[in-house]
Structure formats: structure tokens, C-alpha cells
């Protein structure tokens, strides 16, 4: 009976994951491997292609700050998308059984500390060693192009690529990802909720990947790497705030990053 409860928790979280994160790992991998036929993504590979592809970004409703500099403009689009992604993660968090029963301030703390880690994990399936899907899979941005941006923008994505390429070798399924995201969100909670979700993840990984030894331990280990990536990311954004006098940081992202590490 206990295993049945854990399975139903896994099922519930997968349903919620599919509802809030429509670009699943399975879909992203299909796009990246060119299995979507005529619907291949627009490719950002140099500065010239950046304004050309902006119509794809516009069509998903992102607000752009008026600025002539294409890099800053792109950076604002990324911020808007990140804020929207935070909203999606919040809705997912609210669907984790027991989460909304926690004190509201505790919910805020869990989200504040977990949300960037969740976003990085969710980004991993959208990446391969050559680049990343953005804008709901409508654009593929090459890694080389991101490395060619002026400092400090060029330093933003490389650590995420290095992490993602390694993380993707674990070959998790969407159903595993749903549970792992819940584990990350609840990892700072002190009630017994986190234990139930992590036991469900352990069981799920054993069922889904019977030949992959120690997969649960390997997945949990990734949380340590993630913490470092988030710390470095927050420091980089804080540096940007000081050095880019024209740059505004989205108020929601400011809230999350203020006093975070």
C-alpha cells in the first residue's frame, strides 16, 4: 500500500508537470534531434540573426524595454521569460501535496531558494553540447554565439552548458524530472513532506532505470553542483547591476536574488 501511495504521488506530480511545463523533455529532445520535420527552430548563431528572431520572442508575449543595444534587449527578453517561468514553477509548487498547507512565509522561502535551481534543471533537457532551445523551443541559440557575446554576458551560460551536458547523461524521463523538481523545491522544508517525495523519486528511478546503478544518489549529488551554479549566477547578476548602468532587473527576479547567498 505504501508503494501504491508513492506511485500515485508520482502520477499526480507528472500530471501537474505536464500542465505547467508544456515543453517537456521528450518534446525538446525531438526538436533537438531534428525529428519535428518542417517545424525546425529558428537558429541564433550571430548578432545579425538576433533581431531577425525577435519576432519569435514577440509572439510569446514578452515585453521588451526600449533599448538600442541588441544584447541588452535580448537580456530583457530573457528576464521576462525567466519571470514567467518563475510563475509556472510557483503553480507547480502549489500542486505538490502539502505545500500550500505550509506557512506562507515558509512557502516564500522554499520558492526563493529553490526556484533558480529548478529553472536550471528544467533548462538542461533543452540543451545539448552545441546550444540551447529558448522561447518555448522556437529558437535554437548556439553555444558559440553565447560565448562570443561581450563580457560579462559571455560568462553567463557556459557553466550551465557544462552542467547540463553531464546531467543529461543520467537520461531521466519527464516523470523522473517531475519528482526531482518537487524534491528540489521541498529540500529546505522541515516537515515530513520532503521524505515522502524523495522516497517516491527513489522508487521511481528504480522502476524506470533498473540497470542504472546508484542513480538516486547521482541525482541527489546534482543538487550540490546546482547550489554552486546558482551562487555564481546570482553573483554575476549582482555584478551586472553594478556595471551595466542602463540595465534594469525585473522586480520579481530582484526579489528572489536579494539576500540570496
Amino acid at each position: 500500500p505504501e508503494a501504491a501511495d508513492l506511485r500515485s504521488l508520482a502520477k499526480l506530480l507528472l500530471e501537474s508537470y505536464l500542465k505547467y511545463f508544456p515543453l517537456t523533455k521528450a518534446k525538446a529532445r525531438a526538436i533537438l534531434s531534428g525529428k519535428t520535420g518542417d517545424n525546425a527552430p529558428f537558429v541564433y548563431h550571430d548578432m545579425k540573426s538576433l533581431p531577425e528572431g525577435e519576432r519569435f520572442i514577440n509572439c510569446v508575449g514578452l515585453v521588451q524595454e526600449p533599448t538600442d543595444e541588441v544584447q541588452l534587449r535580448f537580456f530583457y527578453s530573457c528576464q521576462s521569460r525567466s519571470a514567467e517561468a518563475v510563475r509556472e514553477v510557483t503553480e507547480f509548487a502549489k500542486s505538490i501535496p502539502g505545500f500550500v498547507g505550509l506557512d506562507l512565509n515558509d512557502q516564500v522561502t522554499l520558492l526563493k531558494y529553490g526556484v533558480i535551481e529548478v529553472l536550471i534543471i528544467m533548462w538542461a533537457p533543452l540543451m545539448n553540447k552545441d546550444g540551447t532551445l529558448i522561447s518555448y523551443g522556437q529558437i535554437f541559440m548556439t553555444r558559440e554565439f553565447l560565448k562570443s557575446l561581450r563580457k560579462p554576458f559571455c560568462d553567463m551560460m557556459e557553466p550551465k552548458f557544462e552542467f547540463s551536458v553531464k546531467f543529461n547523461t543520467l537520461e531521466l524521463y519527464d516523470s523522473d524530472m517531475a519528482l526531482f523538481l518537487a524534491v528540489i523545491i521541498l529540500s529546505g522544508a522541515i516537515e515530513e513532506l520532503p521524505e515522502t517525495v524523495s522516497t517516491s523519486l527513489e522508487l521511481q528511478l528504480k522502476l524506470n532505470h533498473p540497470d542504472s546503478l546508484q542513480l538516486f544518489a547521482k541525482v541527489l549529488q546534482k543538487m550540490t553542483d546546482l547550489r554552486q551554479i546558482v551562487t555564481d549566477h546570482v553573483h554575476l547578476i549582482q555584478l551586472l547591476k553594478k556595471t551595466e548602468v542602463d540595465m534594469c532587473l525585473h522586480p520579481l527576479l530582484q526579489e528572489i536574488m536579494r539576500d540570496l547567498y
Binding site: S80, R87, E91, L104, N105, V108, L111, P251, L252, E255
Partner: peptide
């Protein structure tokens, strides 16, 4: 609470992308 007012709002009710 003031420091995290958007997060509070997101947790208490859904906010549309436009409002964000």
C-alpha cells in the same frame, strides 16, 4: 513580507504574464 510581495502574490493567486 514587503520584501517578497510578488512572490506572496504568486503564491496566493495566479498572476498573468502581463501583470508580471
Amino acid at each position: 513580507k514587503e520584501k517578497h510581495k510578488i512572490l506572496h502574490r504568486l503564491l496566493q493567486n495566479s498572476t498573468s504574464p502581463v501583470e508580471l
